[in-house]
Amino acid sequence: MGVGIRAAGEDDRELVVRLLDEAFQDDPVSGWVFPEREYRRTTHHRLMAAFTDIVLAEGRIDVTEDGTACALWLSMPAADDGPDGGDGGDGGDEGDDAVRLRESVDPANARVEEIARLMAESHPADRAHEYLWMIGVAPARQGEGLGSALVQHVLDRCDREGLPAYLEASSERSTKLYERLGFTYADRTLDIPDGPRMWPMWREPVTGRDRP
């Protein structure tokens, strides 16, 4: 039996924030950004809300019909297709975005800004692609294939349209899921200073697949 998937709207904002907050409470990167457990419980949801608002405005959020899992996607143009029409600029926009993110989420926490800068700087810019920013599954429903179904839902479109896909896995355990979906390691890891490692992964579109 397949997993029902729909596009989220503004009415789903609180659902998505809650799913991400619960799913990422014990994530290594979230633990680095908010190292004190009690503070993380009371503050982490603000970061998830900021991410949700960005993707609701600029990308697409898919949710399972039963509301137990969600995936956040952005369509990324190649650098020379961007509004500056050139080499992607000097990173100033990304830096300003990182500052605004910190100020809106946790103004005294420099790590909010730092993680945003690191991820922006490591993002591939030479080819247009679909970017899986985050995927969250309710803890009680993890291991049931919901995450795989959400990702494959977009990868099928990527294959039809000839688009690659990109993500940063935040744990070695999660890389196994993405490998099964056709992602492979990029040529480097993203090593957070005095913190965990992230694994950028890339997937080329699959061509010649039989489709209904």
Rank of each mutant, 00 (worst) to 15 (best):
T43G: 02
H44E: 14
H44F: 12
R46Q: 10
M48S: 11
A49R: 15
A49G: 11
A50V: 05
A50H: 15
F51P: 02
T52S: 08
D53R: 15
L56G: 04
A57F: 07
E58A: 11
R60A: 10
I61R: 00
D62T: 12
D62I: 03
V63C: 11
V63M: 02
E65T: 15
D66N: 12
T68C: 10
C70R: 00
A71L: 00
L72M: 14
L74D: 06
S75H: 12
A78I: 01
A79W: 04
A79T: 07
A79R: 14
G85Q: 08
G86E: 05
D87W: 09
G89R: 05
D90Q: 11
D90Y: 05
D90K: 04
G91E: 07
G91T: 07
D93E: 15
D93F: 12
D96I: 13
D97H: 10
D97A: 14
D97E: 15
V99S: 07
L101W: 05
S104R: 14
V105C: 05
D106I: 02
P107I: 13
A108D: 15
N109C: 10
A110Y: 10
E113D: 11
E114M: 12
E114F: 00
E114T: 10
A116H: 06
A116L: 00
L118S: 05
L118V: 10
M119D: 08
A120Q: 04
A120C: 09
E121T: 04
D126G: 02
R127V: 12
R127I: 05
R127W: 03
A128T: 04
L132E: 01
W133E: 12
M134I: 08
I135F: 05
I135H: 04
E144D: 14
G145V: 09
G145P: 08
L146Q: 07
S148L: 07
Q152T: 11
H153V: 03
H153P: 00
D156C: 09
D156K: 12
E161V: 06
G162I: 03
P164M: 06
P164Q: 05
Y166R: 03
E168M: 07
E168I: 08
E168V: 11
A169F: 04
S171P: 03
E172T: 07
S174K: 06
S174L: 07
K176L: 15
L177N: 07
L177A: 12
L177H: 10
L177G: 09
Y178A: 06
